[in-house]
Design a protein around this nucleic acid. Sequence first.
DNA 1: CTTTAGCACTCAGGGATAGTGAGTGCTAAT
DNA 2: ATTAGCACTCACTATCCCTGAGTGCTAAAG
Lengths: 355, 355
Amino acid sequence: MNLTERKKKILRAVVESYIRTAEPVGSKAILELADLKVSSATIRNELSDLTEMGYLEQPHTSAGRVPSPKGYRLYVNELMEEQRLSLEETRQINDALHLKMQELDKVIDQAGRMVSQLTNYPAFALAGERRRTTIRRYDLIMVDTNSFIVVVMTDSNVVKNKLIRLPTDLSQPQLQMLTTLLNASFVGKSLEELTPELMRVAEHAAGSAYGLISLVVSFAMEVLDALEHGPVYTAGTSHILDHPEYRDVDKAQKLMSYLNEEQSLANVLDLPALSEDNTKILIGPENVADELKDTSVVLASYDIGDGMKGVIGVVGPTRMDYAKVAAKLSYVADGLSKLFGGQGGLPPAIGEKEE
Amino acid sequence: MNLTERKKKILRAVVESYIRTAEPVGSKAILELADLKVSSATIRNELSDLTEMGYLEQPHTSAGRVPSPKGYRLYVNELMEEQRLSLEETRQINDALHLKMQELDKVIDQAGRMVSQLTNYPAFALAGERRRTTIRRYDLIMVDTNSFIVVVMTDSNVVKNKLIRLPTDLSQPQLQMLTTLLNASFVGKSLEELTPELMRVAEHAAGSAYGLISLVVSFAMEVLDALEHGPVYTAGTSHILDHPEYRDVDKAQKLMSYLNEEQSLANVLDLPALSEDNTKILIGPENVADELKDTSVVLASYDIGDGMKGVIGVVGPTRMDYAKVAAKLSYVADGLSKLFGGQGGLPPAIGEKEE
DNA sequence: CTTTAGCACTCAGGGATAGTGAGTGCTAAT
DNA sequence: ATTAGCACTCACTATCCCTGAGTGCTAAAG
């Protein structure tokens, strides 16, 4: 059977009406939505064809039609019109994007919350440094005789620190030596390479020095580990209760606890790697995770700078306003890229003070 | 009317049965629970008294009795027996408490998640540095000619850093000077005092230097601000759906979005300041926030060290297993205090390497 | 004065039943 | 290929009724 223009037009009407109302769409309703010069009977015949071809489904014999995942897919690929955001909407996003420049983690968290509010779906955001990262340099700052601060910087310019206290005293020269040693041996190594290196150094260094080194290096390893399996921030999970498909508490429960589990969404992103184009839509069964088999995920990626990428996305029922959500996400992602990339962490205000 | 021993015994039976079953408790059921040598008719008379006195409520004339907030309060104050945790339970908590020693924020977040899992209620956790904090020292570490890292340390030994990039070049001596200046003028000042100080210094310093100073100081201010209104971590909000009182989706929705709002729980803690004793129970209408008027909150406070305190707690229906929850929370809070206070951030492993 | 047995009464919850209406599929005519 | 017409299906809602748990009250017994 052939997918004629008229069939497409009807499919589109079904999808769009269903997205709006969450009710199965009948032949008469379509008659009014798509301006076709045919009768409802003809449409019924077409609907019957579309159902047979797998684009539509029927909840029960005497109900209207509902798009199948395959139907949504076709809609998203071919039928959906780019949604243009209204002035009001872009203004709203721009306002929200004036995030205080603070720690990367916080900004990402904020962005997630914002997107959730903007779209009324649960949202998630993460910094996707999913590559081999290394420490570029170590600094030790003495605080007093038995404590110092470690500052490590990665090759992607992430800086982390930690205060370390010791039961024994420590002199400035000792600290200096330690710094030199660290920067000589533990730089440019990946997470996996650090442990063997630590072993090797252990043989030469005295016991006490080794203790110190291992303290600092294990902190560095924690940092690298955190970067490679960075946190996934989830926001607005309660929004799923807005949607009629989750009136069923058990269903809502399942999805929510899945979303609230810290790392679960990280896996979602394994397959559809941060891909070529800016946004990506995963419909129902296209998702790998069982828990998401009847939800959809819309993703957009953004640049954090230094080749680092991040992902921001929303999760919702397959009946999702893909056009609008994709438009908003993409706009936000662009905004984030500018925010990070454009100024490299320098708040704009200062530029004006320059002379 | 007088609250006789028998009445108390009956009240206790009602509360405990209702906590277990979430069903109104009838006179016959009580007969079996509390071993009273009276008939159900007598109990009915007593129930009627207790209802009149405001300790019990009746959902409808032909149903059993349900504890009122006043009834719960009496139960918690006088009738409840300290719950002892089982070996299995303490083991479980101890295992979970072996948190990786990492940033304070992360540990607190983790602890919240853990408590939620442990109790099956939504949980929250925060570090309650709700006092005047100041910066104790500044360090600037040069990265290359146009970027450096600021490291600030507060008087409560919290350390934060940030990478700052500049469009202009910067020499090591300049950085040195800047450090000296910062440590001379911007130390020991509270959030509010920093802005005027910045103004004062501005008059002496040249434009470009001022720009740099203000960059660093505004970062310091962000840090102080974050400490004084620190984040509240919420976990396991989906657990409210476990409880029959939230089968009503709308009700669940309201509570959840309240809980998910970053700062809302911070307010909860204003009134019942981190009080004298370790745990605190707020029942239904005792809560200040409207959204919590028919939920209960159980809190425990813990020491982070350096006089800093934190709070960890759970939110649930008034029909909450107060004894068990309080016991678990208190155990966790003690554990956290030990974790933070006991070793001041030094992982135990290193002690063994000492010589 | 307290306790108890007995009984009428209340009311939520759970089928069962029937009516309604949106929507279909099919047939026969255009 | 399209359409009008019609019988049919089935979720949804309202209504009614029944059941059982539980109460409150009364009158008798301790």
